[in-house]
Design a protein around this nucleic acid. Structure first.
Lengths: 147, 147
DNA sequence: CAAAAATCGTTGCTTTTGCAACGGACTACA
DNA sequence: TGTAGTCCGTTGCAAAAGCAACGATTTTTG
């Protein structure tokens, strides 16, 4: 085992971590310009709510791979800003279901458009085929690791 | 623009974020078993030091895309645990150069081996060619976004 | 049917992180 | 040469995030 064999930039852990961080910080900058008054993390939650209105908090915590307390506090903020609404699940009163308000949907649109813009910046000079393969591999890794 | 067009799992931001988080949490679990007494973030710093002993703190902050104060505190911990040594750069006394101790090198080895193991888990069922393309694309994105 | 175990969201506490301000050291320019 | 501006690491402070414990509710089990 030779020390010089290893290069951090060849490690998937390193690469996904840095790219993710750079994409998020770019998102923060671009959203900040158009008075996005919430912490960037909320953008991630909004994305998860995209196709699945009515999720409970626990679902969101799992989807975001974060602690449920962290999600609860983010939702508090979003509720204060009238971006989401919490409603108790009558079928199981332990759960609170999360719904987007009209303002929340608007925010989603803005985040969506901005992410697309950032993806274009990020994949400049890379062929579409290769980007697609990259996404496919990431999806497989996600499924492998998700448990 | 139709709401149903969007699926978060198709977004590079989402994918890199989740895969990175899952890889890191797996790393935390596996290192935890073999009494890795430092916060997981230190593993990332150790990786950056792999090929470039003698970096200054600012370099590490940039490499890790984190605040220099955050790095300084992580280095404090690592110094307390005799994993690294700080030495003032005599040529420019503003800088402190970071060097690994013997114990630090040992740690690196352990982290390296563990990352390889995790990568194997994560890429199970994916062809090597596609994994390579994925890494290549991530590297390009990294360079595009790094500025 | 009753008691034990599990699930969900909240709260308190601690750790981690980033931002801003500071002092010490170097550089550039007049 | 000296003065202003820049760069580096540290510290104080505030925001963000995880862990553990709790009450309320539901499910399981005997």
């Amino acid at each position: 085992m030779n020390t010089t064999d290893f290069d951090p930039i060849e490690s998937l852990n390193f690469l996904t971590n840095r790219v993710s961080r750079l994409l998020t910080s770019r998102l923060k900058v671009l959203l900040g310009r158009s008075d996005f008054e919430l912490p960037t993390q909320c953008a991630s939650i909004l994305a998860d709510l995209w196709k699945q209105d009515g999720l409970k908090q626990q679902d969101l915590a799992i989807a975001a791979i974060k602690d449920k307390a962290t999600i609860a506090r983010a939702l508090n903020l979003m509720e204060q800003h009238n971006v989401i609404v919490r409603r108790i699940d009558e079928k199981d009163k332990r759960n609170k279901k999360i719904f987007l308000t009209y303002k929340g949907v608007e925010l989603q649109q803005r985040i969506w458009l901005t992410s697309i813009e950032i993806s274009k910046e990020a994949t400049q000079g890379i062929s579409k085929e290769e980007v697609e393969i990259c996404k496919k591999v990431l999806k497989s890794m996600y499924n492998n690791l998700k448990k």
